[in-house]
Amino acid sequence: MRSHGHSRAYSIKCIIDLHAAPGSQNGMEHSSSRDGTTGWSTSPDSISQTLVVIDFLASRYAKHPALLGIELLNEPSSATVPLDILVSYYKQGYQIVRKYSSTAYVIFCQRIGNTDPFELYQANLGSINTGVPSTSSEWCKWASCFYWEWVNEWNVMSGSQLDYQDFGRAQLEVYGAASFGWAYWTIKNDRKHWDFEWNIQNNYLQLGKIVASPTIHREKYNKFLNLKRLAFCF
């Protein structure tokens, strides 16, 4: 994988995220749904195919020095993916990754929508190097780590450049404390405040002025900018 080669060259670790499952896990266009329907959780064949993909990814990249972890599924919908189905899938996925690696993080994404953020807390999904993309430090009581995924945007119509600078600075000061670091969504996007490159080049986000976690380094951005990747994480 080219990105793994780049990551090794620039000392950046990779998380492999299964973003689209057969039948779609949330009905969104980035999860393989063409018409908004969600059929992953109701099809045993689709779930089995997804586990085969996890097996392929884990077997191929488990020993790669750039691999940090594998996220088993991106943003399953609480409206269409029952908790028991998701827990069963996560437990099987965890065992598959552990078959090939005892150290790679296995990341469990919470369901999106109107749901209890702690619903996976007592599910006993796995005990070694587990992680969750989260907005709650309470997850640290169960998961080995948590990390923050964020964007320099919020629902305002008249925010000034200074407002965005202050907003980005406040987020980085908090997210820099995450035990797993943080990830910005994303390096290139048609929504300008979701676009990390645009925010830096137009001085809406000022990494060089942040005094926080040692994981935040402007030079990492400068190196990675040359790669023109679609997404990245520190």
Rank of each mutant, 00 (worst) to 15 (best):
F118I: 00
Y89G: 00
C14F: 00
V156D: 05
W194L: 14
F234A: 01
R60V: 07
I54L: 11
V156M: 11
S144D: 11
H19S: 03
G5W: 05
Y184L: 10
I107H: 01
R169V: 00
G208S: 14
Y175T: 05
Q171E: 08
W139F: 12
L162W: 03
S144I: 02
A212V: 03
D84M: 07
W198H: 11
Q122N: 15
N74W: 09
I47G: 01
I200D: 13
C109F: 12
Q122S: 13
H30G: 04
Q122V: 02
D55Y: 05
I112K: 00
A9K: 14
E197F: 03
S160Q: 11
L83Y: 00
V174D: 13
C14Y: 01
H4I: 09
E173R: 10
T135Q: 08
E153Q: 13
E197N: 14
Q171R: 15
A231K: 10
L125V: 05
L207M: 10
N129R: 04
I70H: 05
K99E: 15
G93M: 04
Q171G: 03
N222I: 10
W142K: 12
S160L: 06
H193A: 08
R191A: 14
Q122H: 13
K99L: 12
A21Y: 00
I112C: 09
T215R: 07
Y184T: 08
S213A: 11
A143Y: 06
V53P: 00
D35Q: 10
A143S: 13
T103D: 15
T130L: 14
L172H: 07
A62L: 06
Y204M: 06
P117K: 08
N222R: 14
L67N: 05
V174F: 02
A212E: 07
G159P: 00
I85W: 01
N203V: 00
S213Y: 04
H217A: 13
R111Y: 02
S3L: 14
C140G: 09
M1T: 06
Q122K: 09
Q171C: 11
V52T: 13
T215F: 12
S127R: 07
T38K: 04
K63W: 05
V87E: 01
H4R: 04
A58L: 02
C109V: 03
A104T: 03
D195M: 07
M28R: 13
A123T: 04
R218W: 05
E119N: 07
L73I: 08
S144W: 01
S24Q: 04
E138D: 11
I187W: 09
P44E: 15
Q161N: 09
S134M: 04
L83A: 05
T50V: 03
A178C: 08
I200R: 15
